[in-house]
Write a protein that binds this DNA or RNA. Structure first.
Lengths: 227, 227
DNA sequence: GCAAGCACTATATGCGTGTATAGTGAGCTA
DNA sequence: TAGCTCACTATACACGCATATAGTGCTTGC
């Protein structure tokens, strides 16, 4: 019943807001299909009919949640980067639970085919593409694909959160787990795993003469070699 | 009605096999919850009751599909690596559609909490860990986390397949799309995106004295900076 | 003080779902 | 040919779901 979607606007302590927050929480945790209108109502402490009264339908509620979550995340980032909160050491820890929740929700939304989340994905790809062009232009020749893969992997990693947490023995959404994951991610981004020459050779061998070789679905992954 | 799960065993052209194949296809395409027993029956050209007759329940059918998909993938890989099909240029293209289907299915299974798929994930992490230790020991100090992130990203990328395909303008499960994605992936693995020194500095700044900094959920992602 | 409006509840309706049961007909065995 | 087995179908059942409708009581403005 607490409000994990940090400091809401004033008019927002209403039942309507409680419903929306409960929905985001449950959608994030159990998925859209895994959550019933009754679950949300119970979590929000209201009757199921009130959801319809305020939002019309489950789908409409979901869309409200989408835009709210997106908006909330943007607001937090603005606050962080634009309002000088970067310097405030207490800010990030204070919003961390909210951010975790929002990311979980948006990951679900991405998987569930939400158009708002899809738009966010596209925007992240565009931004990443620009970033790479500017700061690391040498890493690829196909910036668009590179950025798409980057964002896809990044958000996909979140989608696989359960499995990553399990193999790590620690929930990656706790501070400890996140630190561990972020460390590995940093290693990942800052050291090349494969020999560039090997890759160019492999590419050359695969592409030009006859290319009968759309390899396994995760072709270049060293991990997929086993079994 | 065609049988996309390549050359089945002889006794396998039975209705039972058709049901199983139809289930894998539909589960892969629409997800577990998005597929009804009736859908599967229709796709397999049988009556819904027959599913129960052969498999007992939808959940039991799902488990059969899990182990079958896993088994099938292993078989194909064995055939490829162990039976000298590596040299055969026609082999990969011939099994490509099957592999795509199996990967789609297994990604769904991963997302849907299948225990078999989870075991596969764990095994892939272990194999990746061994591979990194052996072939690229310098990239990290935390091999386990590195491998978990590697496999998580790789499978997560598949989970985000719709979005990646959309931003790329080409389905990554077609030969063309896959080639493009694999190229970006190869760039990704063979060039470091971030300056190692920058990362070690950042790590040092974050870790030791006070660590009020469990950054955003995708902290180190350059793409997440924007907005 | 009174009526209108609105947040909210209780209850009902219809549908899609997984599952259960009874029945049918072809093929095999004796 | 008689009878049995078993793959398979048709139909029914029970249930959970989203959604719809009717009703209630508090709040507000006049």
């Amino acid at each position: 019943m607490g409000d994990p979607i940090g400091d809401p606007a004033f008019e927002d302590l209403t039942a309507r807001a409680r419903i929306r927050d409960a929905a985001i929480r449950l959608f994030a945790e159990r998925g859209i299909d895994g959550t019933t209108v009754r679950d949300i109502a119970q979590e929000a402490g209201v009757s199921p009919g009130l959801l319809r009264h305020h939002f019309g339908s489950k789908e409409a509620l979901r869309e409200v949640c989408d835009t709210y979550a997106l908006d909330r995340l943007v607001k937090i980032k603005e606050e962080f980067y634009l309002e000088g909160k970067v310097a405030n050491p207490g800010f990030l820890p204070s919003v961390h639970p909210t951010i975790v929740l929002l990311y979980k929700y948006l990951t679900r939304a991405l998987l569930g085919g939400s158009s708002g989340a899809a738009a966010m994905f596209d925007e992240m790809v565009t931004l990443s593409e620009q970033w790479v062009r500017k700061h690391a232009p040498a890493v690829t020749e196909d910036y668009r694909a590179y950025a798409a893969v980057l964002v896809g992997m990044q958000s996909g990693l979140l989608a696989m959160h359960d499995h990553v947490s399990r193999t790590l023995g620690v929930d990656i959404f706790t501070t400890e787990g996140h630190l561990r994951m972020a460390g590995a991610l940093a290693d990942f981004y800052s050291h090349s795993l494969l020999d560039p020459e090997f890759v160019t050779k492999a590419r050359a061998a695969m592409e030009p003469p006859r290319a009968p070789n759309p390899p396994t679905a995760t072709g270049t992954d060293p991990g997929a070699e086993g079994a």
